[in-house]
Design a protein around this nucleic acid. Structure first.
Lengths: 461, 461
DNA sequence: CGATTTGTACGTTCACATTTT
DNA sequence: AAAAATGTGAACGTACAAATC
């Protein structure tokens, strides 16, 4: 029997003790899940302390802990020792970003389309390849990690962005997201913890959730993640890896300076973390910057998607990795995908080899420069370390909104944008932002129309 | 202190109690892992009962259980209540099947290549498509689950194999293995249990292992999996799903008759299992057979790869699924892959629409018939329910061999073949087999040379 | 068929680390 | 700086269920 009666206590969650069935922990977890998913417990609500709940329900503390762990694994809640347990900021809402046709007739400033008009150059290369007499040879099961010739092109392309590795430590994957899946499945297991920026790419967050891999947010400053904070998190929890996106952080658009890269690398090495470096925006980075992987030669995976730089629809990415990961990654590729289509790899290789790739990124940089100039006519960029050529901007909102209602309100005005709640890893946010894609609007006029709508919206009231 | 001294007991595994460090369960698990991976504990060895070990080490029973669970999750051991705990038959060996270049100069009868010479027809279609003026439109982020036009072709193609669904419940994936990954991640979570045939496709076994999804083998007879045994397993353990491969089981080559399909479907429905039906070999099946999914309309995922029927290197598969799974699968596609390249989908759709697909499978059936005739000149097919057009045969070995040494011995004679140990899900095998791929040899002569080597090998001594 | 062996699942206890006050 | 609040993780004890004899 409980020692006290709690009927008058102000508990934020009072599960009905009579609906508890055996097993207790599972039934408690599903009650909590139900109440979160049905809105009885709002995001960021602080739940009663585990001991209090245990006492209230007249069950053991560990049983509550166990129930909470179940919900935490699903991303519904998060707990901080000493502070308490909270409902996750985006509990129950799908935060992933994809081109599902909800944006019909809208100006697209949510999803980042990297100047799709330039796909005509890729189409030309496809036509060239279609004429080759070895075409049918591209259609078999050979070379799971990619044909040597294709990996050679990958090597050359990554070297252009200062990532140098041997051919044996390079593989071709089916796009950036597929690289994440591959690495998370091959090098991590359910329950492992990975450090990430407090704001992180939503599809990475959701993927980790699906795989029961725990993300631990680490705070940052104008230069990106803070090494001291990473160090502190390492001491506190048993981290296995870290995910970083230094060339042009998604969503904050920060380009991490070299000094910060080296400091972080030091912490990563000291703590034996596996570095997952996402360098999809390397083409926006100054040409003398070195990837962080360069400083973590024993335990890095460098993921270089060509979706933004060259062509999204090809679904091809390159990865380079430390020697010690080669077997695990090869095995992962075979078990997840068997392989990436050699036809697509061939197109990517040809783009690189015949110079079209270089021409495409030159054009993209010019287009992005132009669109950023337009953006600055309406909004200012506060942090000088933000990438001036970024395909999107991270705009601080002047006041607080209900995240989903904000997105809906903008959609009603013909604009698709994503609110910062989608990018949050656990924790409550103090300031709110929207990510403003500049490269998705079909032309400059449309971009400008979108920016005007956004400006009007954010200044009114 | 332990009650007795165990120094003279005949225990198959006597871990050094002094090397136990805290946490006990983790240190015990890693000792066990070490001893298995380094060969001190041979496959199929029966480990001491958990209680005995606990007593011997003077620790709690549950601590041993926990250590064992860790190793079981890695696929190193398996436990049967009442019988004991055993080292897994393929503990520590990679069993996956992929075209890694170990087979140089060998006759390929291991990997199943489905008559790659016919890829010339696919190459033709690629040339046609390269001429289309909408080519660049195939290269963007749109339609994560596949463009309606491509899904329409998928629908039509699956309907040809008696799988009828609405367009909303069809998606395009990046090949058969990718479909497995997608479904396992989207509809299952680590720790879930899935029933499979006692012999199952190794890449499915390894993928499940990587995702910490537990496979539970179910026995069968000449017709395939036995409904009574499935029923028994359902009563014993809390199954979430079942994986079946009924058109031409890999590796047993059995085509499951309609009666058995309906009986199994009944058990699947009664127990609320999610059915994963792998119909990659539908083109080898009599045209009036219905997929099992037909009888499990509420909880099926029907996975139809075109790698074997049409072209392996395209990396395209279709999946059809129950209405209730649509959201989870869409979300999974976005988080695992973003999408499958529309270029590849377009090629697949065009193959189907212009009749080339039909022509290709007609040719493949003729080729397979011819090669099966040759096979029967050397070996007999014991079970009349084995598919007469199968691309591979399941050949019982006259005596027992060391599995890996057998594969090596055959390789030395210029033949790559896979021994049945790769296909075993837990449990020890009584009889041994090899899977003999008929469709991979470059021509009939080569096939015949391979069969002669195999015949000589299996009759000698 | 009943007793024994063996693995499984759940809830409990307790020492500890971090955060907050 | 000490005390209190709060979550974490390991190990334990017990009831139970399946397989074997």
């Amino acid at each position: 029997m409980p020692v006290n009666s709690f009927e008058n206590y102000p508990m934020t969650w009072k599960p009905d003790r009579r609906s508890l069935t055996s097993p207790l922990y599972a039934s408690l977890a599903s009650m909590l899940e139900y109440d979160i998913l049905n809105g009885f417990l709002a995001p960021n609500t602080k739940l009663p302390p585990q001991r209090e709940l245990a006492d209230f329900l007249d069950i053991n503390l560990s049983t509550v802990t166990r129930a909470f762990k179940l919900c935490e694994a699903k991303g519904l809640i998060y707990a901080i020792t000493g502070s308490g347990t909270f409902v996750a900021p985006n509990a129950g809402s799908e935060i992933f970003i994809a081109d599902i046709d909800t944006s019909k007739g809208c100006i697209e400033m949510g999803l980042i389309k990297a100047f799709d008009a330039l796909n005509i150059h890729v189409a030309e290369v496809i036509r060239d390849i279609a004429e080759k007499n070895y075409l049918d040879k591209l259609l078999d099961y050979g070379y799971p990690i990619g044909a040597p010739y294709h990996r050679m092109a990958a090597k050359q392309w990554m070297a252009r962005f200062n990532m140098e590795t041997s051919l044996d430590n390079i593989a071709i994957t089916s796009g950036g997201q597929n690289s994440f899946t591959l690495v998370l499945i091959s090098l991590f297991k359910p329950g492992d913890k990975i450090a990430v920026d407090a704001y992180t790419y939503p599809n990475f967050i959701e993927l980790a959730n699906m795989l029961n891999i725990q993300l631990v947010p680490v705070g940052g400053d104008a230069m990106g993640m803070l090494p001291q904070q990473l160090e502190a998190v390492c001491r506190a929890t048993n981290l296995k890896g870290i995910y970083l996106n230094p060339s042009c952080n998604n969503p904050t658009a920060v380009t991490m300076p070299m000094s910060r890269r080296e400091e972080l690398a030091q912490v990563i090495r000291d703590n034996g973390l596996i570095l997952m470096e996402d360098d999809i925006y390397s083409f926006l980075c100054p040409s003398d910057y070195l990837p962080i992987s360069h400083f973590v030669p024993e335990k890095f995976v460098y993921m270089h998607s060509i979706s933004k730089a060259l062509a999204s629809g090809l679904r091809v990415a390159f990865i380079a990795y430390a020697r010690g990961f080669a077997d695990a990654i090869t095995r992962g590729i075979c078990n997840i995908n068997i392989k990436t289509s050699a036809l697509n790899s061939e197109i990517a290789a040809e783009l690189i080899n015949n110079g079209a790739a270089e021409a495409i990124i030159t054009k993209k940089l010019a287009l992005s420069r132009e669109r950023n100039q337009i953006y600055r006519q309406y909004f200012s960029i506060e942090n000088p370390l933000e990438n001036p050529l970024s395909l999107y901007r991270w705009l601080r909102l002047p006041r607080r909104y209900h995240p989903k209602l904000l997105e809906e309100a903008l959609m009603k005005r013909g604009l698709r944008l994503f609110h910062s709640y989608r990018f949050i890893v656990k924790r409550e946010e103090s300031t709110q932002f929207v990510r403003v894609a500049l490269s998705s609007a079909t032309d400059v006029k449309e971009l400008e129309r979108g920016l005007i709508i956004l400006k009007d919206f954010s200044t009114e009231k």
